[in-house]
Design a binder for these strands. Structure first.
Lengths: 335, 335
DNA sequence: GAGGTCGGTCGAAGCGCTTCGACTCCACTC
DNA sequence: GAGTGGAGTCGAAGCGCTTCGACCGACCTC
């Protein structure tokens, strides 16, 4: 491995000069700079990450804690993770991948070892155990999600209340008066991962204003679960003409079952989903949907981290405006 | 931050003793060990990762390069990534997440900076640009996938040839004589990501033995693409009674279209998929499938890495035996 | 022309850890 | 009773980098 000292010797300057060429923290004459850069090129020098971290107490690593549960919401998580990794690189950071497995202890370990300069936590629960540890670790952190107490923390998330409201608005505008909400699996509510509740809150509030009756039912993914849920919904509210689907894994089963029951989408029944655009456009009916902007969330969270590390930090909640795209799954309520 | 020196002072021993307690590389008396461990506890000491890496020239980090293309095969990739991260932790390693974005240069950067002790590459192509760089970086590496030249490299993958053969075997055993293969998107073949070709090779070879006619057609995911592909298949081979589906995103559209055309599964047509078990069990028809053992692949690749770093390394190709599970989508060919 | 300023460079002191050699005891051996 | 060897501990020398203060000309200013 080539070291900084070797580069310095090769270029006929001192080690510190090379370091300053690299970091730009002091001015260097053009001629020296060029000479050093040439040596770096020729020798194929790469600064040693460990030495750098030790001397500067900055590792240029951001830790990303993803949820362990691989069973829900996977494409979104993956998209966020990839967006985080790629945008981190554009800011000169690498990303360390932590799974929920280790639990809150991971926060302590990473903070204690100075392995990462900052952390991004995904899938934050309302009363997340990691938050107290995070707060008194003093480490920079950004959450994707919205806990109950956001004081001293930066949060990035989709505005799920507005998302819920937007869905209701759309359906109400089309004349629907009885709307069923296909929620997330019951476990998601039990964990109090705020987004599910917030969506429903948004739906409820707007529904009241708009004179829409809401029936909210949690639902696991898959056909069997969806069939049962759907039967019960039409049982209780035969007049249901609108559906808001929160759970991605329920989208395709729902469309399929409706079709089998001879209910045409969108003539008899309208469906609005909250899901990534890709899911909406690849479904058997092109879905009217509110997009989950996974990439944007990843990108923003990195930008917040970088800003905070650069001292331009802001402790604030950064809620993304939801956007509803009308496609082929929603239309006027039948008369 | 608490340092090793502070722990040493608190415990009344020298710094090196604390280090040896931590690493176990020299014998330490029980009483000293206990005293040191207590001090570590009380002070909440965590070794500084950078200092450790610098002094020992081991970072205890494994770099994982995931493909950038988030559009294909996502759940499998995610599952592998999570499995890699969690099993790495059980061996004392953390995982650095690299995306394809940076391209082959990432290999050079990581190797050069000693940021990671080893690399795991996913989505390896037949003639992958990263391999030459990897070889002469001298860094430990494990590939998930199978390149053309495996010399000096350890590879972990599902035995896709056997997978293809297994599918044909199953269908042939049920009496099917005309089988269509719904392949991956054309782009996948163009990139020469070996697995797709290997599966087809396995299918072809076994088909010849078994007297089965094969029609192989690449197919994008989604309904529109599948509809076109399916129409052309029945056009060319009206007697087709068996389907082997490689592309996960085509599974649901295929089932749906077959249903719409009045072809019952499995009475009229049998379907065998190559996909994770979760997809197979959550589909509208419970699918007979060969599982893609994502977790197992992640776990094994970490084990290979750890073995190699520990000097117990083996340059070998570690192909996982495919397993076919019969579910509700396949049955005897109609007479 | 003395004093001040600033751009450009260097030397040296760490950052917190690992590891090697050396040292001390103590229990054995012959 | 000297010699041997292992167990347990310590001190010191780095690992490769950043960064601070110092230094040296060159250019201004009054």
């Amino acid at each position: 491995m080539v070291t900084l000292a070797e580069v310095a010797q090769h270029a006929g300057v001192s080690a510190s000069t090379v370091s300053y060429v690299l970091s730009g923290k002091r001015s260097i004459s053009a001629s020296t700079r060029e000479r050093v850069e040439l040596s770096i090129q020729q020798l194929g020098y790469h600064p040693n990450a460990g030495a750098r971290a030790l001397a500067s107490s900055r590792s240029n690593i951001i830790a990303l804690m993803v949820p362990l549960r691989t069973d829900m919401y996977v494409p979104v998580m993956m998209e966020i993770a990839i967006a985080v990794a790629t945008s981190a690189r554009t800011h000169g950071y690498d990303v360390l991948l932590l799974t929920g497995e280790e639990g809150p202890a991971a926060v302590r370990r990473i903070a204690g070892s100075s392995l990462a300069d900052a952390m991004i936590l995904m899938d934050v629960e309302l009363h997340d155990e990691r938050l107290p540890l995070l707060r008194d670790s003093g480490r920079t952190a950004v959450l994707i999600g919205l806990p109950a107490d956001t004081s001293g923390l930066t949060c990035v998330d989709l505005d799920f209340e507005a998302t819920g409201a937007l869905c209701v608005d759309h359906l109400a505008g089309l004349g629907h008066r009885e709307v069923a909400v296909i929620g997330e699996a019951a476990a998601v509510y039990e964990r109090h991962t705020g987004f599910a509740e917030r969506t429903v809150d948004g739906i409820r509030a707007k529904a009241q204003d708009a004179g829409v009756r809401i029936l909210h039912r949690p639902c696991e993914g898959g056909y069997a679960a969806m069939a049962g849920t759907l039967a019960r919904i039409f049982d209780e509210r035969p007049g249901t003409t609108g559906f808001i689907v929160q759970n991605e894994a329920a989208v395709e089963p729902l469309l399929n079952l409706l079709q089998q029951q001879g209910r045409a989408v969108p003539e008899d029944v309208s469906v609005v989903a909250v899901c990534p655009d890709q899911v909406a456009t690849q479904a058997s009916v092109r879905l009217t949907s509110v997009a989950i902007p996974a990439q944007e969330m990843g990108r923003r969270s990195v930008e917040q981290v970088v800003a905070k590390l650069g001292g331009r930090g802001t402790d604030e909640v950064d809620l993304l405006e939801p956007v509803l795209t009308v496609r082929a799954s929603s239309g006027p309520a039948p008369v």
